[in-house]
């Protein structure tokens, strides 16, 4: 328990540090971001907007310490200011409208890739040099080394244009009203298949190889030999003794991947015109939408930290040895 509390304290500290950086960055940049934005948008902003921007980014010349605390207060109440590129929508609303789709796409593909990749890795290592072990790793690495956009466009061309079986764009069909009913859910699933499948395809090899290699090292451990001498069934040794120990590094990398999901899968979102954080972030950078960028950076930071904390929680369950750490 004290281990988890200490970790939690560490993450809170890290989050505070990232908020502070977010506050400082516009001030540390040479010149005034607001002026630069104005020159970009050719003075199309109203004077109140300019004033609001200055206040938001702390470049209105006020004393830095009170500004900092005011900023902290706004962040903690979820007020990230107004988006410039989608004025006057609040930044939090822009993020909230994109985040669910990003999470849906990212989590679905990650979970499938992790489960499938690890299972393949376990089986390949268990029958080392066997059929699966000789075929799957080179094949998956081969697929994984295609440029992603090429693979995605290829899939879109074959299944979307030539065969016409997969939807071409967006997260659900135009004209459908979002709601919790079967028609909508099926439509969303149909739109999800191709983007998710391409992500799974390119990431599967990494998961499989990682698991396979750890598992091979684990297989030569003494407790595996002892389990065999105990006359246990092979699948029990494979899962409870070998895989149970070999999966620990996998859990760590999965946690890191969960965190980065929130950053969005930019290429996927571009190719499949899928609404998501990645696409939005690109738009924010191109449109010099500083408040939106800042909001997104904070969201991503928070997601990475939360994911890490989740991994800690799971890890404590899986490996008794870290409990005292």
């Amino acid at each position: 328990m004290s281990f988890l509390l200490r970790r939690l304290g560490f993450y809170l500290l890290a989050f505070w540090a990232s908020i502070t950086l977010n506050f400082l960055l516009p001030r540390l940049m040479p010149g005034d971001p607001v002026t630069r934005m104005l020159s970009r948008s050719q003075q199309r902003l109203e004077p109140q907007q300019v004033e609001a921007l200055r206040t938001l980014m702390g470049v209105d010349g006020g004393p830095i310490i009170p500004e900092y605390f005011a900023y902290l207060g706004r962040i903690l109440t979820g007020d990230f200011g107004m988006s410039i590129s989608r004025f006057p929508t609040p930044v939090s609303e822009v993020i909230a409208s994109q985040l669910p789709w990003t999470l849906l796409l990212g989590l679905t593909s990650l979970i499938i890739a992790v489960i499938l990749g690890n299972l393949l890795g376990i089986l390949a290592a268990w029958r080392r040099g066997g059929f699966l072990d000789s075929i799957a790793p080179p094949l998956l690495v081969f697929i994984g080394s295609f440029p992603y956009f090429w693979l995605a466009m290829g899939a879109l061309y074959i299944f979307g244009i030539s065969m016409g079986v997969a939807p071409m764009r967006h997260a659900f069909s135009v004209g459908l009203v979002p709601g919790f009913n079967l028609v909508f859910i099926l439509d969303v699933a149909a739109h999800l298949i191709l983007p998710a499948l391409t992500i799974v395809l390119v990431s599967l090899g990494g998961w499989m190889l990682g698991m396979r290699n750890t598992m091979i090292a684990t297989n030569s451990e003494d407790y595996i030999l002892m389990a065999e001498a105990k006359g246990l069934r092979p699948h029990r040794i494979m899962l409870n003794y070998a895989a149970r120990n070999a999966m620990l590094p996998s859990v760590t990398s999965m946690g890191m991947s969960i965190g980065f999901i929130v950053g969005g899968a930019l290429l996927t979102e571009v190719v499949f015109a899928y609404p998501g954080v990645g696409y939005q972030l690109l738009g924010a950078v191109q449109g010099l939408d500083y408040p939106l960028m800042q909001g997104m950076f904070l969201t991503i930071t928070a997601a990475v930290l939360i994911a890490n904390f989740l991994v800690d929680l799971v890890y404590v369950r899986l490996d008794p040895r870290v409990r005292k750490g």
Binding site: D222, Y223, M226, L318, D319, R321
Partner: peptide, 23 residues
């Protein structure tokens, strides 16, 4: 499998590492 441990059991050279660390 049925014969192992039932009739012959073994204590290994490195019995220190013979136990599964996570259970």
């Amino acid at each position: 499998r049925a014969w192992r441990w039932n009739n012959v059991a073994m204590v290994f050279q490195s019995a220190m590492n013979s136990l599964n660390p996570v259970t």
